[in-house]
């Protein structure tokens, strides 16, 4: 319906690969590829036309290439029946794909120093971002954390794509023993980073945001919330986010995100409706004479 919004396509599978602990599927989806900007995701129907699994599975777009008119690659680990079904797909099978969805990472106007922090499969979304940043003349440094060596995704690509790449694993099987956030501060200092981009589990994003705060640099986080529709209609993926007007709204991760400014996300209040959120119980009593513009709930 438009040149920049999402499309729904039936896309042939080009390849299904094992990459350490993950699977990577590449599909031929020119309309998705041409609209894609880093940070956006696709949602994929699982189980076939009469599937009993009704909800689409959202996946960050890991790579886009011009081959065959435009291909899109996404990464996943098998967690349930839906992802198990996906892992069994073969070349030329058709996937029902919607995308690209969500707000992309905002890119800096100037060639600044960027540190990209990815936890587990969350690092996948940072690879196309690294390319976009480098095209703008930005310095890119990677910090990638995972539970163990087989969950560190694409170490070689990370080293190639960045000035430095630092790895951490919980069990010490690859890189530094510990968490990504143990290493992040040092990288920011060494690289004189101007901005942080992060994707991973919520507790990690919360710590990354705190660290960026210590250094006084902006941080963009991409959240990995559970979603049902990915298009903004079901309202199931909401998290409390402070707007530019200072008002907290229950924002949809799929269309208002998945990329948010880290300091705007109320990490401590995720899973709750904060008492001062727009439309929370008792909200009216605290509100002033706000106009309509103040009241647009996410």
């Amino acid at each position: 319906m438009s040149d920049f919004g999402p499309v729904q396509t039936r896309s042939p599978v080009l390849t299904v690969r094992r990459v350490d602990a993950y699977y990577a599927i590449t599909i031929v989806a020119p309309q998705v590829a041409e609209r894609f900007r880093s940070g956006q995701f696709i949602s994929v129907a699982v189980g076939g036309d009469q599937s009993s699994m009704l909800l689409r599975r959202p996946f960050a777009i890991h790579d886009v290439k011009p081959d065959y008119g435009g291909t899109v690659e996404f990464l996943f680990s098998v967690r349930g029946q839906g992802t198990a079904w996906l892992a069994e797909r073969r070349s030329r099978d058709l996937l029902d794909v919607v995308g690209p969805l969500g707000r992309p990472f905002p890119l800096p106007r100037d060639p600044v120093n960027c540190v990209l922090a990815g936890g587990g499969s969350g690092s996948a979304v940072l690879f196309p971002l690294a390319q976009s940043l480098r095209r703008r003349g930005c310095r890119v440094d990677f910090v990638i954390g995972a539970a163990s060596a087989d969950r560190v995704f694409s170490a070689i690509t990370a080293r190639r794509a960045a000035a430095t790449a630092t790895f951490t694993t919980d069990d010490g099987s690859f890189g530094l023993r510990g968490r990504l956030t143990d290493a992040l501060g040092q990288v920011i200092e060494d690289a004189r980073s101007d901005v942080v981009y992060a994707c991973g589990p919520m507790p990690m994003l919360r710590e990354v945001t705190a660290i960026a705060g210590v250094y006084g640099i902006p941080v963009q986080v991409s959240v990995e919330e559970a979603m049902a529709c990915g298009t903004g209609i079901c309202m199931s993926c909401v998290i409390p986010v402070v707007g530019e007007d200072g008002i907290t709204r229950m924002a949809r991760s799929c269309v208002d995100g998945p990329v948010f400014r880290g300091e705007r996300v109320r990490f401590d209040d995720i899973g709750t409706i904060p008492f001062d959120a727009l439309g929370a119980p008792g909200w009216k009593a605290q509100s002033g004479e706000g106009g309509v513009a103040d009241r647009e709930a996410g």
């Binding site: 009993s52 699994m53 009704l54 909800l55 919330e225 559970a226 049902a228 079901c234 309202m235 199931s236 993926c237 909401v238 998290i239 709204r249 229950m250 995720i270 899973g271 709750t272 409706i273 959120a277 727009l278 439309g279 929370a280 119980p281 909200w283 009216k284 009241r295 709930a297």
Partner: peptide, 21 residues
């Protein structure tokens, strides 16, 4: 009548051929 923040997350779970929300 008024803005409404809704219920806390998680708000939805997939069930056989459907969902609970």
């Amino acid at each position: 009548l008024e803005p409404h923040a809704g219920r806390p997350a998680p708000r939805m779970a997939e069930t056989p051929s459907g969902m609970v929300s």
